[in-house]
Design a protein around this nucleic acid. Sequence first.
DNA 1: AAATGTGGCAACCGCCTGCTA
DNA 2: TTAGCAGGCGGTTGCCACATT
Length: 333
Amino acid sequence: MGRTPSSDKNGLKKGPWTPEEDQKLIQYIQVHGPGNWRNLPKNAGLQRCGKSCRLRWTNYLRPDIRRGRFSFEEEETIIQLHSVLGNKWSAIAARLPGRTDNEIKNYWNTHIRKRLLRMGIDPVTHSPRLDFLDLSSLFNSTQLNLSSLLGLQALVNPEIFKLANSLLLSHTHENQELLLQNQNFQGPELLLQKLQQNQLLHNQSSISQHNDQLHNQVSEIPNCTPQNVSSSSSQSMQGIMGHYMMNNDQMFQKNMMLPLQNYSYSTSDVSENSIIQSLNNNNNNINNNPNSQNFSFDTPLSGAEEEKESYCSNFSNFMKFEIPQSLNFDDLL
DNA sequence: AAATGTGGCAACCGCCTGCTA
DNA sequence: TTAGCAGGCGGTTGCCACATT
């Protein structure tokens, strides 16, 4: 592992540590303690810079380091802490006894981050990625006015949402892969409910009128014929883009609905205090809100992949924000 | 069996912060 | 006030091991 052994301009060795070097460092620290890292290599008889010694000790040789796979609880804790702290690996590591910041950082980048991306979650903001929907390509490739489609005006119809969503998602292979991973989602009813709650749904005549307009707009889209646009909820699953429809509803629900209530903060523009307050509130809301169950995933336990199962379960808990008892967020501040 | 691709991770790099004189 | 230094930190690199073609 690591790098080819080499020396810098001062003759100090770089690259992977040998067992002999490790032994020298361990023995020295056992006797003298870490102390001054700059003088340590000379005193310990090592041709290394102090920084290299410190990293080797803190990331690998320290006796209290816990090695091996991350447990589910650790993984869950990392995700939750990262949603609060961001890339503060040392702060996260401080809450995971025996784990180093470097190890957590590596684990995040190689495992968790990729999983979140596959699920359409932005690992930085922990919010669903709108770019995942490839909105820009739709703007460029069609004449649809998405600002009106996506809830910014009164003429909002779930059918239109579905159409837009289907068009958006049908473009990218990545999306198709992701959609296939999530087979257990319900239809657009939740979205419909939310729209109704927000009084975005107006009278049926205006909806019908909008459908007609949309019908004409869709006819201008390559590979999409007007007859593919369904006009009733009962037909929606057999609408445009064939078999993607159901999956797209699932994806849309996940991307657009999940974050809004229970996951609406950003680590970049909100103070940690308010974030933590938000966490606590969200936790309460989930317990009290009868709709909150819609915001967690029913894990499709096919038994195929342990990792997948672990992640789905983890993700479910992640979205529920069940804070482990052992976590005291007051300590984070 | 060989070539190529990918994942995992130890180690390095460079910037930042806090301390001290 | 500021310059120098040590340590801390997050991002990145590069190698090895394993998987795939």
